[in-house]
Design a binder for these strands. Structure first.
Length: 534
DNA sequence: ATTAGGG
DNA sequence: CCCTAAT
C-alpha cells in the first residue's frame, strides 16, 4: 500500500513535470506510459519552433514528418491532437525556454574563441587548444546534444551558413532528431558521414608523424592556417585527433570503433573502407593510424583508438581469473614499451596504493578501475607470478572517458581518484531526470537518463543535485569573477532556475503524502504551481 | 540495494 | 567525493 502511494506520487510528479506544457498536463496519469513520448515530442518541438521563425517554408513539412515518424500514439490519440494544436502556439509549447535559450546563446552567438574554449570545457570537462571556431562549435553542440550526426549534417555540409543564424541554417537545430533530414543542397557525392573526416583529414600531410611536438602546434601556426582555411584544410592537431576519436567512440555505438582494448593490443576489427594500421610509436607512444580509403585515396589518418566505453570491470576480473598469465604478458609488454620506467606517484593519496603481496587477490584489486586506454598506460610491474611484490598503479594525469580511475584503499575498498567535473550536458541530463522521475529516485534517473555514463553513481547524482540546489539558491554572482576563480564555467542561470523550480514544486508535493492522496484538487494545485512558474 | 545526510 | 546509518 505504501508502494502504491509512492507510485502514485511518482506519476504525479512525472506528469507534473515542468517539461510538460500546460497543455500536456491534462494528460492524466493513466496515460503516463505515453508521457515519455510526449516528452520526446516536446523536445522536438523545441527544435522546430526556432525553425519556424527562420525558415517558415520548411517548418510545416518538418513537423509533419516528425509527427509521422514518431507516430504510434495508439489509444491516446487525443493527446496527440493537443500536441499539434499546441505546436502552433509559441507561448504554449515553449516548455523548456531556458534550455533553448541556453543553446542559442552557447551555440549560435558569435563567441570568441576564448569563450568557445570555456564552453568547451564546461561541456566536456576539459580544455582544448583548438582554435577553429567551427570545430569548437560543432564539438560543443555535439556535447550538448549527445549526438554526433547533427554536426555532420549541419556544420560541415552547410559550413558557410552555419555561422550566422540569420542565414537560416541550423540555428537552434541542435537536436539529434534532425540528423536524418535530407541535407539541403548537398552537392558532394560522398556519404555525409564521411565528410567530416575528409574535411579535416583530407589534406593530412605525411609530415604529421614526423613532428614530435604536436600538442600545441595549433597555437603557433593557426593564424596562418586560419587565413587560408577556406582553401585548404588544416592538418589536425593531436588534440583534435584525440577528441575526434573520443567523440566518435562516445557517440557511435560501435559504429566503427570495435577497438581492441588494452594498451598493448591495438588490434582492430574494421568495417568497410576503414582500416587501422598500427604504426610504430613516436616518443614511446603508440600511434594508431586509420587508413581511410575515401574516394579512392588511401589516406592515413592518425587517430587514437578508444577503448570500449563502460565498465570493463567484470570482464576484467573474469579475464584475470581465467587467464592471469595472459595479463602478465600484456603487462610486461606495456612495461617494455615504456622503457621499463617506474613512475613516481603523483598524489598524496597515492600513498594508499598498496604495497601488495603477490596474492592474486591483491593483483585483482590493483586492476580494478585501472583505465585501459592505450594512451594512458597503466603499468603493473610484475604481474604474472613474478618475483616483484611491489605493484605500482599509474594513472596518467588526464583521465578522460569513463574508465573510472580508482585507487585501492588499504582497507580493501576502492576510491575514485580524481574529481570528474560535471559537464553541462550531464547537468542538463540530471535536471531533466529529476524533473521526470523526481528528486530522490536517483537509481531510476541513473538507469534511465544516465545509462550512457557508467561513472556517476546514483549517489553522485544525488550529490550533484544537492550542489545544484545550493547553487540555485545562492545569489548568482558575476560570471566573470567566478569563472576566473573556479576555472569551471558556472552553471548557466537558466538551468539554475529550472533547478529551483523543480526543487520548489517537489518540496510542495512530496512532504504531505496524506493530503496528496486524498484530493482531486491536488492536480489542480500542481497545475497552478506549475503555470505560476512557467 | 537504495537513499539521505554529514564529513 | 566518501562514508554511514536507516530503510
Amino acid at each position: 500500500m505504501l508502494q502504491k502511494v509512492k507510485e502514485e506520487q511518482r506519476l504525479r510528479l512525472a506528469c507534473g513535470s515542468p517539461y510538460c506544457s500546460s497543455a500536456y498536463l491534462i494528460v492524466d496519469s493513466q496515460c503516463c506510459d505515453q508521457h515519455d513520448k510526449l516528452l520526446h515530442i516536446d523536445a522536438k518541438l523545441q527544435c522546430e519552433i526556432p525553425l519556424q521563425e527562420t525558415v517558415p517554408s520548411l517548418a510545416p513539412s518538418l513537423s509533419e514528418s516528425h509527427f509521422n515518424q514518431s507516430g504510434s500514439f495508439g489509444e491516446c490519440s487525443h493527446s496527440s491532437d493537443k500536441l499539434v494544436a499546441g505546436g502552433s502556439t509559441l507561448s504554449v509549447v515553449t516548455t523548456k525556454p531556458d534550455f533553448s535559450k541556453l543553446k542559442g546563446e552557447i551555440c549560435l552567438d558569435n563567441l570568441s574563441i576564448k569563450e568557445l574554449h570555456e564552453t568547451f570545457k564546461a561541456t566536456f570537462g576539459r580544455e582544448t587548444t583548438v582554435k577553429d571556431k567551427q570545430w569548437l562549435k560543432r564539438r560543443i553542440s555535439m556535447g550538448l546534444t549527445n549526438s554526433c550526426d547533427v554536426s555532420v549534417t549541419s556544420f560541415i555540409i552547410k559550413d558557410n551558413k552555419l555561422v550566422k543564424k540569420g542565414n537560416g541554417e541550423i540555428s537552434n537545430c541542435m537536436d539529434g532528431s534532425y540528423a536524418e533530414d535530407p541535407p539541403i543542397g548537398n552537392q558532394k557525392d560522398l556519404p555525409t558521414s564521411l565528410v567530416s573526416q575528409l574535411d579535416y583529414h583530407q589534406v593530412v600531410p605525411e609530415k604529421r608523424l614526423e613532428n614530435p611536438n604536436l600538442d600545441d602546434n595549433s597555437g603557433s601556426d593557426d593564424h596562418q592556417t586560419e587565413q587560408r582555411a577556406a582553401k585548404r584544410a588544416r592538418k589536425p592537431t593531436k588534440r583534435y585527433i584525440e577528441e575526434l576519436s573520443e567523440v566518435e567512440s562516445k557517440e557511435s555505438n560501435g559504429r566503427l570503433m570495435n577497438l581492441a582494448k588494452n594498451s598493448g593490443h591495438g588490434l582492430i576489427s574494421l568495417k568497410s573502407h576503414v582500416r587501422l594500421v598500427r604504426n610504430v610509436p613516436l616518443g614511446g607512444r603508440t600511434v594508431v593510424t586509420r587508413l581511410d580509403s575515401l574516394g579512392g585515396y588511401g589516406i592515413q589518418v592518425p587517430c587514437v583508438s578508444r577503448v570500449r566505453r563502460s565498465r570493463p570491470r567484470k570482464n576484467f576480473m573474469a579475464l584475470l581469473k581465467f587467464n592471469p598469465s595472459g595479463m602478465g604478458m600484456e603487462a610486461t609488454l606495456v612495461k617494455k614499451a615504456l622503457g621499463d620506467h617506474s613512475f613516481p606517484l603523483d598524489d598524496g593519496k597515492e600513498s594508499r596504493v598498496l604495497k601488495a603481496s603477490s596474492t592474486p587477490e591483491h593483483v585483482h584489486h590493483q586492476f580494478i578501475g585501472v583505465p585501459e586506454k592505450d594512451k594512458q598506460f597503466s603499468v603493473m610491474s610484475a604481474i604474472g607470478l613474478g618475483h616483484n611484490t611491489e605493484l605500482k598503479c599509474i594513472n596518467s594525469s588526464r583521465d578522460s572517458d569513463d574508465n573510472v580511475v580508482t585507487v585501492p584503499t588499504p582497507k580493501g575498498g576502492i576510491r575514485r581518484k580524481h574529481h570528474r567535473a560535471w559537464t553541462l550536458s550531464e547537468v542538463m541530463k540530471l535536471v531533466e531526470g529529476v524533473s521526470r522521475y523526481g528528486a530522490g529516485r536517483w537509481s531510476e534517473i541513473k538507469r534511465l537518463a544516465f545509462a550512457s555514463y557508467s561513472y556517476r553513481t546514483s549517489v553522485d547524482l544525488k550529490d550533484k543535485w544537492r550542489n545544484l540546489l545550493k547553487a540555485s539558491l545562492a545569489p548568482q554572482d558575476n560570471g566573470m569573477n567566478s569563472r576566473k576563480s573556479t576555472g569551471a564555467m558556472p552553471i548557466p542561470a537558466p538551468i539554475l532556475l529550472k533547478v529551483r523550480e523543480l526543487a520548489e514544486m517537489q518540496a510542495q508535493v512530496l512532504p504531505n503524502l496524506s493530503s496528496t492522496k486524498i484530493a482531486g484538487s491536488t492536480r489542480k494545485n500542481v497545475h497552478e504551481k506549475q503555470t505560476g512558474f512557467l
